[in-house]
Each structure stands twice: as structure tokens, then as C-alpha cells.
Design a protein around this nucleic acid. Sequence first.
RNA 1: GGAGAGAUGGCUGAGUGGUUUAAAGCGCACGCCUGGAGAGCGUGAGUGGGCUUAUACCCCACCGGGAGUUCGAAUCUCCCUCUCUCCGCCA
Length: 436
Amino acid sequence: MLDIKLIRERPDWVRQRLASRGAGEEERVADVLKADENRRKAIAEVEQLKAARNQAARDIGALMGQKKTAEAEARKAETRAMGDRIAQLDALVKEADAARDALLLRLPNLPHETVAAGTGPADNPVVRAWGAKPEFGFKPKAHDALCEELELVDFKRGAKLAGSGFLLYTHWGAKLERALIQFMLDLHTREHGFVEVSPPYLASRDCMLGVGQLPKFEDQAYAVQEGLDAATRGRLYLVPTAEAPVANIHRDEILPENRLPLRYCAYSPCFRAEAGAAGVGTRGMIRVHQFDKVEMIEIVKPEDSYAALERMVGCAERVLQLLELHYRVVLLCTGDMGFASAKTYDLEVWAPGQGSYLEVSSCSNCEDFQARRMNLRYRAGAGDNRFPHILNGSGTALARLFVALLETGQQADGSVILPEPLRPYLGTNRLTRPHP
RNA sequence: GGAGAGAUGGCUGAGUGGUUUAAAGCGCACGCCUGGAGAGCGUGAGUGGGCUUAUACCCCACCGGGAGUUCGAAUCUCCCUCUCUCCGCCA
């Protein structure tokens, strides 16, 4: 969430940065300022009364001590009415607080000044590309055909088990999925300095609010219900990304400065309801309700966060480089960025069978937007607690990486050659039909 | 799921309605002392908010979370969460 003091002191700048997202959010700034003013007025009034009540209580205590019972009773009687007034005003403060927070929690982060202005994916500048589109002496197949022929994924039965958008990996497909997860975790922990964690796959509402997944995007999450008790729905959510639990590991803490940067990586399945997304990308495994992902989270001092973002993108790129996949890096423009992010790079891997690039990683610097929501601070010095910056990045998302790997490695005979680093994990250098 | 016990500041740990609107010890920071260190002595130190040029002063709130009783709640009542012990169920 945005710093209310920043909004108070530089409302025009905040409006201008919000406007760059092109969603009209800048119109909410006036509402926020009004709500903030209401809140402060209510607080000032009730606190004055409370100070008076506290003084009265002290006086009564002293009178009782001196056995001046009559005076004490008289003082009690005149103080009694104050309690009701305070209760009323407290309720007003609570209301004003909630009103302000409701607005603040729905305002997106401010795009960093280095982010290109734009309105959609077409305006995302390509920062660099690595490798080249592979050449084939034949017409490359799409991954769904390869999956069926090599029995890597059983789409039909996956849908039978949980509905459209759920995958049943089989034979080499299941092993390849597992191998990719392990390969990426090994890479990030051994070479990139991340600490591996394995979080719960359900996250509390507070965690979801903390990363900015809620309250705006409730329709995209799977809310679970505990047993038959419908009242429990909305307390826990299936994680849409490991970012939700992992970024919140230190919520409500004040970290010693020397613990930063904290670098975590985690595997988790990711569950996305993505209501009403029929049409584009519904075929195969490019857009599904559950996919696997290895996520990187970094908590850093503010002055280090943009260098950390570049580094994190490099860590994600390293995965694709080692797997010998052609990809490009794009900088998301102001109109295409996620809610919590100040600056985001996407990695798009080439999928020859699709004839298009697929997003397999998104690395974002959320600055202090999330730290503020989750009340995570670090001690920069005596009496100087600050919000750290939090970054997240996929390193990388599966399913689509799986697609690119199959489509890139496919051979004329229908088999798929694996890049060298995966071979030890699978015990083979080539995927073939599991049986004749 | 059932029964019981517990949750206090960085840690330990007092505190069952009012000079305790959080004692004491340890640890911490600074100062004095010392050639230096230690010991000793002294001082200080939490979080958020309001008011502010101010991380100064003053004020409000915070003893797991929420509600209540009261002039006044760490303390009494109710609900919830978490931890520990035991029982049941379970991979």
C-alpha cells in the first residue's frame, strides 16, 4: 500500500504516477485524502477526551486513597458520561480507519520512473534476447501433440479428475516435471545464494492481503472451506503463487539490518481460478488452473532493490540459458504491470510449435508496497525502522517451460532431446514413447 | 475432535481493580572510571498513532487477538487464535 504521508505531501505526483497506469486510479486520491482527514479529526477529538478521563481516574484513585469517599463518588458521577461519548467517538475512529484502509488497500503501486509509458502488452519494450529461434528440417509439432504421442500428459483424464485446466502428467512427463523443479531449486540454492523453503500451499487471508492478491482479485483465487463449515470460507486460499506465503515469512517483524538481503526460493503448485478465460490459450497446457513454479523472493534495503531486480532477472534467465531455450526479456510498460509492482521484467521463451513467445517468468520490484501491507520492517539504526523492499520473480514457471522444452527439443522421429543439465535428473538424454 | 495448562518488553520473570497507567535480573547503548579491558557507578533505551520543521516536548493506544464490566483493567467476564501435556482419529 502507498504511504499515506506521501499521498498527503505530494498528491499531484501520486496522481500523475497512478495515471500512468491508465486505469483511472488517480481519481481515488481525493477520496483517500478526505478519508485521511476524517480519520485524523476523529482521533484528535477522542484522544483529548481520553486524556481527560485518564486524569479523572487518577484523581479518583488519589481521593479514595485519602478516604474522601464522597468527593470520589461525585467525581465518578461526572466522569461517567464521558465513557459513553468516548465509546461513540471510538466507533467513529474505527469507521474512519476502515474507510481509509479500504481505499488505500485498493490503490495499486506507483510505477517507477524508468518504466516505459504504455497501455498494453504491445507497448512493452524488448530489453534483450538470448539465443535464436531453432531451425527444423520439418514442421515442428505443438506440445499437445507431442504430449499425446509420447504419453507425457493425459489431458482427457486430467479433465476427468478435476475439470478442464487440470493436468495429469504421466510417465516421462511426470518425471520431467519433477526434474525441472529439482534442477531449478538446485541451481538457485547452489549458485544464486537463495535459501530453499517449502511453504504451506494454503495461505491466510492476511498473507493474500500482504502481497496485494486481495482485496481486489478475490475472483482469481480458490477460497477453501474447512469441512462442512461454510463460515470458514475465505480464511484460507490455495496459493496462487509461492510469493503469497514466502513473502510473508517475516510479516509483523522488525529485522536486524545485517540480515538483509534475505533470499528465499520455493517450489509450489500455483492455483488460479482466472474466471471466464475461454478462448485464447485454452488448448494444451499454456493456460491452466494449476501449474508448478519455483519462485524467488528477496527482501532488501531500499537502496539496493533495483540492482537486486536486475540480478534476479539474471537468475531466471540462467535457467533458460542452461536449458538452451531462446528467450527475450521485456520490460512491462506502465499499463501492463501488476497491482503491487513498481517495475517488472517478463521473460518470454520461444515455443516453436506455437510460433510464439510464452511468458515463463515475471520479476518484480514491489518496493515497500507489500512490506507496508504486511508490516515488515528492518532496523536501520536506533529509532529508525524502515520498510524494506520486496522482490519476487518466477524462476521459472512450469507448464509453459515444459511446452518450450518439448517443442524446442523435438526431433524428426518424434522423440524429444533433452538439454544436458536435465539428463542426470531423468537418467536419459531423450524422451520416447514409454512402450512400443 | 475432547480434557487440562499457558501466552507480559530482546530474553528470563514479578504483577488477582488505583503512588506499577509494567518491578527485578540478564543482555544492549552511551557516559564516568581505566594505560586498555573488566568490575563498579550513572544515564538511556519498545511499537504505532495524534500534534509538530522535528526521530524535541506533550498527548493517545498497545501485556496473544476481539468484545464486555468499571470513574479506572496486564489483573474480572465472554469469544477466538496459537503453544505445551494427555486422549481420540488419521497419512
